[in-house]
Nucleic acid binder design. Structure first.
Lengths: 147, 147
DNA sequence: CCTCGATCTGAGAACGATTCTCATTATAGG
DNA sequence: CCTATAATGAGAATCGTTCTCAGATCGAGG
């Protein structure tokens, strides 16, 4: 799943809604496509060395979220991070480090993910709630902070 | 696990850190103890009918989080909600409604929770990450928003 | 190519949630 | 009681985010 493949997919998804895939928007997708986990607006702005002004980064994130290209992720007070949606990056879960606050992605092996699905389905049956998606957040200490 | 039992436990936990369990703090614990899910500062202030000013609610939340009585929960842009920590309320998961943004708790039946534990343990073995806790976030539509 | 309308952008103002400040009040211990 | 310490209330300050608006860009039709 290369970055240029992301570009093709995003471009066509945006085209469907009559939205342009401009250089600024590409730049944001590039940054997120090569990130190790979700990033916030300020982090993205930083990684672009100011080539895209912060207010435009925010607008771009809103446009891409609206188009279903990005998914917001909340794990810290007052900070929204974004990552590529699952249809671009694949289904995965998060390891949230209680030491440094960072978030890493994990993709489960099929048998484990199948088990997760069964659990989520069971919960749907137990409650008046129609589940569309799920995410397992595991808190702990990453290799760097553990020791 | 009654509310008065919560009060006793919280009081003794706070005493350990030389922190007073004042009426305002009790009121916040009361509200959270009888909530159906995590609440934000404004929601708590609202449910107290202004008996505790908003700035005090914020301070109280910070104090109680610091003491390990409350756990913050993030599921919405720019809004931090809190709930009683697991040692007070028991382990549970969250149903996050993509319609109204609300969050409900679910406690899994033992066999399902046991399965979750196995999954989390397996992930710990797969990665350089020492898990201390986990939470399954299920996104979907609540009974009210579905239809 | 050139024009026109629609879309996008940049800069800064505005906003909402949260935190801070500081003067005042409550509390526990001597 | 008195005093030192902790807690409170009200409003100002802060920070992430959203909005506004004037100007730049684009792409379809002439």
């Amino acid at each position: 799943m290369s970055v240029s493949s992301h570009h093709r997919q995003v471009e066509s998804r945006l085209a469907d809604s009559g939205v342009r895939y401009t250089p600024g928007r590409r730049a944001v997708v590039d940054v997120l496509g090569s990130a190790e986990g979700p990033l916030g607006a300020a982090e993205i702005h930083e990684r672009l060395h100011g080539r895209v002004p912060l207010s435009s980064v925010y607008r771009t994130l809103a446009v891409l979220e609206e188009a279903g290209v990005l998914i917001p992720h909340f794990a810290q007070k007052g900070l929204t991070r974004y990552e590529l949606a699952e249809w671009l990056r694949g289904h995965h879960h998060h390891l949230v480090c209680i030491g440094c606050g960072g978030v890493e992605d994990v993709t489960l092996p099929d048998p484990l993910e199948a088990e997760m699905d069964r659990i989520v389905k069971s919960i749907g049956k137990l409650t008046e709630f129609s589940a569309t998606s799920h995410s397992l957040e595991i808190e702990g200490r990453c290799a760097r902070c553990d020791g």
